[in-house]
Amino acid sequence: MVSSLSESAVVATLRAAGCVFAEDEAALLVSAARTPAELTDMVRRRASGLPLEPILGWAEFCGLRIIVEHGVFVPRRRTAFLVAQAAALARSGSVVVDLCCGSGAVGTALAASVPGIRLYAADIEAAAVRCARRNIEPLGGQVFEGDLYEPLPDALRGTVDILAVNAPYVPSEEIAMMPPEARIHEPRVTLDGGADGLDVQRRVAAQASAWLRPGGCVLIETSRRQAPVTAEIFASYGLTPQVMTDDELSASVVIGTRPLS
């Protein structure tokens, strides 16, 4: 850790670069840097516009440090609501799949919340899978690389209790309005949900029943505006939908349950 004088200089540099939370970020950078030279490089990268989390090498999520690297989707605070809803349905021994897992933040947080789950995860992005393996495999989970369900073991078909999904749901035309940390530094495939933002959700819903056990649930993060349509999509594929919202986190999750019969 470097000196407090260095921290003051870091705050000034970050303020000049337009960082809104310069003091908080400076404290994190100073704590993470092992040498003054390393701190100088970290501050330079942050001031140039790179997101803070990949510079640190981790993102805070549900009270955990989730390993991330540059070019990987950074878990959002609102996604804690998805974790909470999934955790309420899971128990020790539940088969849980973190689909479109990114860094594996959702699966990692679920494993911390519900010890004893059988955890699997999948993502199409190689860098995300690399991070997810570092987060999930130490917990005994397995991570696969590929498109949605395609890389999952066939033995999981019809056995999954919880499908927790944070699929991209930003409409294509709205990508340009996102903060630069996301639209410039995160892969577009992790953000772009197509014309109405729900293309990937439709693909998830179309195959969900084949992977869920009877009574199992798929949970998808979406926006409050999109939630009613997401619920309709679930219903069209034979799932019983329920919309959950959290005003404090500005979060919405749609739960689709496979009927018992």
Rank of each mutant, 00 (worst) to 15 (best):
G238I: 10
P241S: 04
S236G: 06
C217T: 11
V218W: 07
R224Y: 14
E232L: 12
P241M: 07
T240D: 14
R225I: 13
Q226G: 12
L212M: 08
L212P: 09
L219H: 00
V200Y: 01
F234E: 01
V218K: 02
V204P: 03
D199I: 03
D199R: 07
S223A: 13
V229M: 14
G216H: 07
V200T: 13
T222P: 08
S223Q: 06
A210N: 10
P241I: 06
E232P: 02
T230Y: 02
A231F: 07
W211E: 06
R224H: 15
S236H: 12
I233K: 05
I233N: 10
T240K: 14
V229I: 12
P241G: 08
Q242R: 13
I220K: 00
S236P: 11
P228Q: 00
T222I: 06
A235P: 00
S223Y: 06
Y237Q: 15
E221L: 07
L219P: 02
L198N: 05
P241F: 05
L198K: 00
P214L: 10
L198S: 05
R203W: 01
A208E: 11
S223E: 09
A235Y: 02
A208F: 05
A231I: 05
P214V: 11
Y237L: 08
L198F: 09
Q226Y: 06
V218E: 06
T240A: 15
L198Y: 05
I233M: 11
A206R: 13
A231G: 04
S236Y: 06
L239G: 02
I233W: 09
T240N: 11
P228Y: 01
F234M: 13
F234K: 00
W211C: 06
Q226W: 08
S223P: 10
R225W: 14
A205F: 07
T230F: 02
T240E: 15
L212N: 07
R213W: 08
P228D: 02
E232D: 14
V218T: 06
T222E: 09
A231S: 05
R213A: 13
A210H: 12
V218P: 04
T222W: 07
C217I: 06
S236E: 15
A210Q: 14
A206H: 06
E232C: 09
R202I: 01
Q207C: 11
Y237D: 14
D199P: 04
T230A: 13
A235H: 04
L198M: 07
D199T: 13
G215W: 09
F234Y: 12
Y237G: 10
T230N: 00
E221K: 04
R224S: 14
L198A: 03
R213F: 04
E221M: 05
S236D: 14
L219R: 00
C217G: 00
P228T: 00
V204F: 04
